[in-house]
Amino acid sequence: MQKLILKLLLLSILFIVFDNIIGIAMSRRIVNNLHDKRLYNIITTDKKYSIYVLGSSRAARNVNCSEIEKITGLSAYNIGYPGTNIEFHADILYSIIKSGKTPKYILLLVDSTYELIDNTSLSYNYDVLYPLQHYGSVRELLDKRGAYNIFTKNITTFKMRHCINIIIHKDLTDSLNKINNDGSMPLNFRSKNYNTMVYGNNTSYSTATESPILLSSFKRFIELCNYNKIKLIIIFPPNYNMASHKFIERIKYLAANKALLADFSMQISDKRLFYDNSHLNENGSLILSREIGLYIRKLQQ
């Protein structure tokens, strides 16, 4: 029995040594191969921005931060992630604050009408966080979400299995995930369903369908901004057919006196400026960004 215990101990020590060596080598390779380095840059560089744009694809696609910078004179960066929900946005905001990059303004572009409703197209994107898990703030977020157990917390290679594809292959880049220097991800083409798009209003919205988790994340997002003295501007981006007044009223009610609300949902109705029902194309995003810039400039005055 003694022999077995000794050999197991020796094997464990060797495993820990090799695990760490491989882990360090891999984490470097992951970062080098990462296509979307926006969060990595925020965590690791000294560059600070006055404005961060957060949200799902509606933030990433619809807001051109260079345009906002031109109008406001404030530095701006887009850290919107397509397909993500408010839970994820709140955690990204937490990472920004935790890394000492607290901005003056946060622009949160809400998803009408799915912001507070569970749906398959918006989720918590672990794939963004796993490659950066060796950074304290990201590890803390993953830990809080129960992503680790006693094994995964201490074994580097076991944690790396989530991003093994990035280690071996560079992240795939295509026209849908092209990222500009200001962090925005504009679309300069049309969606497959473009021709079937119909302009109109969607008035239906029921609070009964809201998810308690998303609702509390939304409140947490507002609290994070208030606590850190960040001016939060909640933006309702243009929608070709899904702007819901009931939804806007609901968000206004939840954010009352704690955030500024900018409703651009009916601002653009020209179909040529849209990529699909809920996203603007590159030209549309320039128009919206100009409007947002002017809105912020007014606030500064």
């Binding site: 094997l11 060797l14 495993f15 090799f18 695990d19 491989i22 074994i155 290679t157 076991f158 790396m160 299995r161 989530h162 093994i164």
Partner: peptide, 18 residues
């Protein structure tokens, strides 16, 4: 032999499906 033990453990750790 020890190399094989370590290899199995490291492959298991790195390639196990999330």
């Amino acid at each position: 032999r020890w190399f094989c033990y370590l290899l199995i453990l490291l492959l298991l750790s790195l390639f196990s499906y999330p």
